[in-house]
């Protein structure tokens, strides 16, 4: 039942992705409407999946790598739906849908939905730590998406070769402002998530502490560079892409290797 909801959600993201690709290829892309609605419907199904799974488990559904991936995909959709329209970033949906689709398709097709043996209710701080940290990752994912958009738009402006999507992109300064806000949102949430991890009262694995602090320091350094004004926006955008790619790989690696990360 719950996987069915997830499959429907994945189909909505697939639909958004295909529609955008076809519209861009036919040079008929219109920013508003279909794409946003498809992502919103996908989000509703994701939420329903997580609710059903959470009720079945009796806890926040973050017990294995499969659920971690879906929760991350849900966080990305949530933050896109909250900030996309507000910051005139509707084209961001064209980049967000393939990312979420990829995450969910990978989770559905891989043999990673293995029931976790632990049944005891975890500490609320541990649940808070895991869920807030993953929402922070959602913000970093969108900072990465905005960074990619910035790099593409900057490249078009530098090369003076514009394509039909050029005028659909948000202005460079707006994209940079969105990157900054997303970085701050992710950073504040991650700080809160890490702090919650230390309040669980349980011994934390060294690898997890090192990884969490490593990610936190990386993003702190990016924010510092951004606010000192000594690093060009293009480099900040590149760093957002690099930081999230590295953090996602590490998240996957650590969660995969260490079952202790799951609740």
């Amino acid at each position: 039942m719950d996987r069915g909801l997830l499959i429907i959600s994945t189909l909505f993201f697939f639909l958004a992705m295909v529609w955008t690709t076809v519209a861009i290829k036919a040079r008929r892309y219109r920013a508003a409407g279909f794409n946003f609605s498809a992502i919103a419907l996908g989000f509703v199904c994701q939420t329903a999946f997580l609710t059903v799974r959470g009720h079945a488990l009796g806890r926040c559904p973050l017990t294995n790598l499969f659920e971690v991936f879906i929760f991350l995909a849900w966080s990305v959709s949530l933050i896109y739906l909250l900030i996309g329209p507000a910051y005139r970033l509707s084209l961001m949906g064209a980049f967000t849908a393939p990312f979420v689709f990829g995450l969910q398709a990978f989770a559905l097709l891989s043999p990673i939905d293995v029931p976790h043996p632990r049944v005891a209710s975890p500490s609320p701080w541990l649940e808070m730590h895991a869920s807030v940290s993953l929402i922070a990752y959602g913000a970093f994912a969108l900072a990465c998406v905005a960074g990619l958009m910035y790099l593409l738009q900057e490249r078009q402006l530098k090369s003076r070769q514009i394509n039909s999507l050029f005028y659909h992109f948000p202005p460079l300064t707006d994209l940079f402002a969105a990157i900054t806000r997303l970085l701050w949102l992710g950073f504040v949430l991650l700080t809160f998530g890490i702090a919650a991890g230390f309040l669980t009262g349980q011994p934390l694995p060294y690898v997890k502490i090192a990884w969490s602090l490593g990610v936190w320091i990386f993003y702190a350094a990016i924010l510092l560079a951004r606010h000192l004004g000594t690093t060009a926006p293009r480099r900040i955008a590149t760093l957002c892409v690099v930081a999230f790619s590295a953090a996602l790989t590490l998240l996957w690696g650590i969660t995969f290797l260490s079952q202790t990360h799951s609740l």
Partner: peptide, 8 residues
């Protein structure tokens, strides 16, 4: 238009 795509 180019200025608008840069500065908004």
């Amino acid at each position: 238009d180019l200025a608008e795509q840069i500065f908004g």
